[in-house]
Computed example of a mutant assay.
Amino acid sequence: MSSSSTVTVTTWSLEQTAPSDLRPAAAPPGDDVRIVRAEVPSPEFSRFLYASVGADIKWVDRLGWTYAQWAEQIGRPGSETWVAYDRGTPAGFVELAAQDDGVVEIAYFGLIPAFRGRRIGGHLLSYGIARAWDLAERRPERTPTKRVWLHTCSLDGEHAMANYERRGFRLFRTETAEQPEVASPGPWPGAFPSA
């Protein structure tokens, strides 16, 4: 008989209710970082970003998705993926998901581990929030954005919550639940830089 262990996970939901709530971070020094929208939906590229960014923080909910599920998710109206590049190399992404009544969720945001600690995260998050607020300018079929929200949890990176709060997000809900403990799959064995 096998037993599975659980872990207590706290999930925090945060929101902005006006574009003026955004407190942008400064861009990293130099001009090495560019942020570009991935305009051609690519399940392969989206899965690469998801697995590479989330490997050490236990993002596992999409790992079992089929190609068709990825294609459906990123092909939805109002879905956008913005990618940060450091000298041409993908460094992280922010995925926007438009919802009903002018609501936009920041569905995923993060950096590939090797790019953390370089002041890219605050800049990418600021850029992604601004794109959530002006989504209807690129998607005229959408209602203008009235609210931007996201959730983070105690399994996320140690600086995630502070970054969200510094960008002007306010907490509106806290939930705690027991979840099965999962191992960090990593993009492949041995991929993490040694400490």
Score class of each variant (00 low, 15 high):
residue 2 S to H: 11
residue 3 S to T: 14
residue 3 S to L: 15
residue 4 S to Q: 13
residue 5 S to Q: 15
residue 7 V to R: 12
residue 7 V to P: 00
residue 12 W to R: 07
residue 14 L to H: 03
residue 15 E to P: 00
residue 18 A to P: 04
residue 23 R to F: 06
residue 27 A to K: 03
residue 28 P to N: 00
residue 34 R to E: 14
residue 35 I to F: 05
residue 36 V to S: 05
residue 39 E to S: 12
residue 40 V to L: 10
residue 42 S to N: 14
residue 45 F to M: 09
residue 45 F to Y: 14
residue 46 S to R: 07
residue 46 S to W: 07
residue 47 R to H: 13
residue 48 F to R: 01
residue 49 L to V: 07
residue 49 L to R: 09
residue 50 Y to G: 02
residue 53 V to P: 01
residue 56 D to M: 05
residue 58 K to G: 11
residue 58 K to D: 15
residue 62 R to F: 07
residue 62 R to C: 05
residue 64 G to T: 09
residue 66 T to N: 02
residue 68 A to E: 15
residue 71 A to I: 01
residue 74 I to H: 02
residue 76 R to K: 14
residue 77 P to K: 05
residue 84 A to V: 06
residue 86 D to G: 00
residue 90 P to M: 08
residue 90 P to G: 13
residue 92 G to N: 03
residue 93 F to I: 02
residue 97 A to R: 10
residue 98 A to K: 05
residue 99 Q to K: 14
residue 106 I to M: 11
residue 107 A to G: 04
residue 111 L to S: 03
residue 112 I to A: 07
residue 115 F to H: 11
residue 116 R to Q: 15
residue 119 R to H: 10
residue 119 R to L: 00
residue 120 I to P: 00
residue 121 G to M: 01
residue 123 H to A: 07
residue 124 L to P: 04
residue 125 L to E: 11
residue 125 L to H: 10
residue 129 I to C: 09
residue 129 I to S: 05
residue 129 I to M: 09
residue 130 A to Q: 08
residue 132 A to S: 11
residue 132 A to M: 09
residue 134 D to S: 14
residue 134 D to C: 13
residue 135 L to D: 05
residue 138 R to F: 07
residue 144 P to T: 08
residue 146 K to A: 14
residue 148 V to A: 09
residue 148 V to G: 07
residue 150 L to Q: 03
residue 154 S to V: 04
residue 155 L to S: 13
residue 156 D to M: 03
residue 157 G to H: 15
residue 158 E to Y: 11
residue 158 E to S: 12
residue 159 H to V: 12
residue 160 A to T: 12
residue 160 A to M: 06
residue 161 M to G: 02
residue 161 M to T: 08
residue 164 Y to L: 00
residue 172 F to H: 14
residue 173 R to Y: 01
residue 180 P to A: 12
residue 181 E to F: 10
residue 182 V to Q: 11
residue 184 S to M: 09
residue 186 G to H: 12
residue 186 G to S: 10
residue 187 P to D: 12
